[in-house]
């Protein structure tokens, strides 16, 4: 849908107030320019969660990798990959962080989203099921009939847990998944609201030190070893409208990803600047890996797992979702 149509819908919309504050807003003027770099758009808004995954966005910004490409990037804090889809569709964001499960679900529902760059891939012990120290749950099989906390239902959390249940001869019908934000999981489990939680960093480390939790299982093992977790997405329309901008973004991000992969210190130095993870915590948490290019074969594994466990009803060809950047950008 075009912006004009949106404006009409808005003007017709519910209140005088919405219309009064107007469609003729002034925010979107300074972005299109034909300057020396030849980019279609020189200022872009990029959505990211305040977590370790999108660290390369902030590294590229601070090291001037975007500037070298003639690009000004404004990071915008988002609240989740699924919530970011309407924002890239509506033009509030140009590019956004997303997790691959959300993107593939959105694509299977006909959303015109494209993956434009890779971001974060699981490593051992980056996503664990945690239980209290004195919990009777000793193996994954003991989870039968228990309540497991996940940050989102029907997403990467439940998918990762289900792959481990399968190894233990269980299915997702054998446990009860309950949605809970990561920061609340430790207390919820301690107060008996649930028996186990699917956690990532810095919460794995925090629940270990604050509540004395222990790891039940690493959910990024077996079928899910080295599972691609998160990437950058844009709408199909955006990607075809701004190919050079996208290529510039891609080069800068890729450079930052290489830096992040080669030197953990770069990540540790950056985390306290855009998250509330302090330097001390940043130095001890377990981090995933930061691939510098999108690889269809690796990503296909996510889609295949999703189909195997009923998250997708039909096969999804991941290659069709990947935008190959214009090489002569």
């Amino acid at each position: 849908m075009t912006r004009k149509l949106r404006c009409h819908a808005l003007a017709l919309g519910v209140t005088v107030a919405l219309a009064l504050s107007g469609c003729g807003g002034s925010d979107n003027t300074a972005t299109t320019a034909g300057n020396g770099s030849g980019l279609e758009k020189t200022t872009i808004k990029v959505g990211a969660l305040p977590v370790p995954d999108p660290v390369s966005l902030y590294i590229a910004n601070e090291k001037g990798f975007f500037k070298e490409e003639g690009l000004t990037v404004e990071p915008v804090t988002i609240t989740g990959g699924a919530a970011a889809v309407p924002m890239i569709e509506g033009g509030q964001l140009d590019i956004s962080m997303t997790n691959y499960v959300s993107t593939f679900v959105a694509a299977s529902q006909g959303k015109k989203v494209k993956l434009v760059a890779d971001m974060y891939q699981a490593a051992p012990n980056t996503f664990n099921i945690m239980v209290p120290k004195d919990s009777p749950i000793q193996t994954v099989a003991d989870l039968k009939g228990k309540t497991v906390l996940v940050n989102n239902l029907k997403n990467i959390a439940t998918l990762a847990v289900t792959t481990q249940l399968k190894v233990a001869g269980l299915t997702d019908k054998d446990v009860k998944f309950v949605e809970k934000p990561f920061p609340d999981m430790g207390n919820a489990i301690m107060s008996g609201q649930a028996d186990a939680g699917w956690l990532t960093e810095p919460f794995i480390t925090a629940t270990q030190s604050q509540h004395g939790f222990r790891k039940l299982v690493d959910t990024m093992s077996g079928q899910t070893a080295d599972l691609p977790i998160a990437g950058w997405m844009a709408t199909e329309e955006w990607a075809s409208k701004y190919p050079k901008t996208l290529a510039a973004f891609n080069r800068a991000i890729s450079k930052a990803q290489q830096l992040a992969s080669s030197d953990r210190k770069e990540i540790e130095a950056m985390l306290p600047k855009y998250t509330k993870i302090d330097a001390q915590t940043a130095s001890v948490i377990t981090l995933g890996t930061y691939p510098s290019e999108l690889n269809a074969n690796r990503l296909q594994k996510v889609a295949d797992l999703m189909q195997e466990y009923g998250y997708l009803t039909s096969p999804l060809d991941v290659k069709s979702l990947i935008v190959t950047p214009a090489s002569n950008g």
């Binding site: 912006r3 949106r6 819908a9 808005l10 919309g13 919405l18 504050s21 107007g22 807003g25 925010d27 979107n28 915008v76 919530a83 309407p86 924002m87 509506g90 033009g91 509030q92």
Partner: peptide, 12 residues
């Protein structure tokens, strides 16, 4: 609903 309808952050 406002997130869907209004594309500019502050205006929304």
């Amino acid at each position: 609903l406002a997130i869907l309808l209004i594309s500019m952050e502050q205006m929304m």
